[in-house]
Amino acid sequence: MNAPVNPANGNVGIVIVSHSPDVAKGTAEMVRQMVGEEVPLAFCGGDPGGGLGTSVEAILAAIDRAWSEAGVAILVDLGGAETNSEMAIEMQPAERQGRIVVCNAPIVEGAVIAATEASGGASLDAVRRMAEELSPA
């Protein structure tokens, strides 16, 4: 049990990236209702044409909205959400490198758990580890 590090600039931010705008929005609503307002939170879903998919531009914007000096943890659903998120991370300015991670966790449960951990001021690494600890028993 490490004492949480709470940087002056706040808690780790959470970004939710789904193929479906509804899933992304619903997941974010669960985080807000279950965990609260203490964590920066942003979500995106759907392709620019309104269909299912993910877009690098939307992910970049979501990272900006949820940005925290403590870093950002991204929760994704399927394939493209992960690869586009990784692309968005690579496109970040140098000063953000190493402070954005994609969590290997289920999107809904992982988002709630990551946000719970982040709300207590945990480090980005601790947030990711807690989300990834949630795996089928």
């Binding site: 049990m1 004492a3 949480p4 279950m34 965990v35 609260g36 709630v112 719970t116 709300s119 207590g120 001021g121």
Partner: peptide, 18 residues
């Protein structure tokens, strides 16, 4: 369950004690 667990954990985290 989920919501009570979140509340309990968040409260526990506000204390230094193990």
């Amino acid at each position: 369950h989920a919501r009570p667990s979140v509340k309990l954990t968040k409260l526990a985290k506000t204390f230094q004690s193990a």
